Amino acid sequence: MNRDIMEGNWKQIEGDVKARWGKLTDDQLDVISGNREKLVGQIQESYGVGRDEAEKQIREFETSTDR
């Protein structure tokens, strides 16, 4: 999955994102709205990880989600 697919299919993958990062609230997911940079920031904030770790987690998510 690439960035365009994430943004374009956000409503379809939102549940997968919530399952992977359960600390993210529905309000946060609404704000993210498929924007990868916002997702990185919210993961950093909610999980207390650095940018590199958040990016790594998203890359792993993108490669494991066949959409």
Rank of each mutant, 00 (worst) to 15 (best):
Q28W: 05
A19C: 15
I58R: 02
D52T: 13
D26M: 10
I43N: 00
D66K: 14
I43D: 01
K23N: 00
I32Y: 00
L39D: 02
S64K: 15
A54C: 04
I58G: 02
Q44P: 05
I13F: 11
D66C: 12
Y47N: 04
A19Y: 13
I43V: 06
V40L: 11
V17G: 01
R59L: 05
E37T: 15
E62Q: 13
T65Y: 09
L39H: 02
E37D: 15
D66E: 14
V49S: 08
E60Q: 09
E53V: 09
L24S: 06
V49L: 13
S33H: 05
G15P: 14
I13S: 11
W21F: 01
V40Y: 11
G22L: 07
R20A: 08
G50H: 05
V31Y: 01
R67M: 09
Q42M: 03
V49A: 10
G50K: 14
Q57G: 08
W21N: 01
T65V: 14
W21I: 00
Q42L: 05
G41Q: 10
A54F: 00
Q12C: 14
K38S: 09
R36Y: 15
K56W: 10
I32K: 01
V17H: 00
E60F: 08
Q57E: 07
Q28E: 01
E37G: 14
F61T: 00
I58L: 07
F61M: 05
E14G: 08
I58P: 04
E60H: 09
K56N: 10
A54K: 05
G48R: 03
E60R: 07
K23A: 05
D66V: 10
D66R: 14
S33I: 04
L29V: 02
R51Q: 14
D30A: 08
V49H: 09
A19L: 12
V49P: 08
R20G: 04
E60L: 14
S46R: 07
Q57W: 01
I58E: 07
K56A: 11
G34M: 06
E62W: 06
I58A: 05
E53S: 12
Q44H: 04
E55N: 09
T63I: 09
G41R: 11
G22N: 01
Q28C: 02
D66A: 10
E45W: 08
T65N: 15
R67Y: 12
E60Y: 03
Y47T: 03
T25K: 00
D30R: 07
E55T: 10
G15T: 09
W21R: 03
R59P: 08
S33Y: 06
S33P: 03
V31A: 04
I43G: 03
R36P: 13
T63L: 07
V40F: 10
D16Q: 14
E60K: 10
D26Q: 12
T65W: 12
N35R: 10
R67V: 08
S33W: 09
Q42V: 04
V17S: 00
Q42A: 07
A19G: 06
Q44W: 10
G48S: 06
T65P: 04
K23H: 04
G41V: 12
K18N: 01
R67L: 15
R51W: 15
E14H: 14
Q57S: 14
G15R: 11
F61Q: 06
E37M: 12
D66W: 09
L39E: 03
E60M: 13
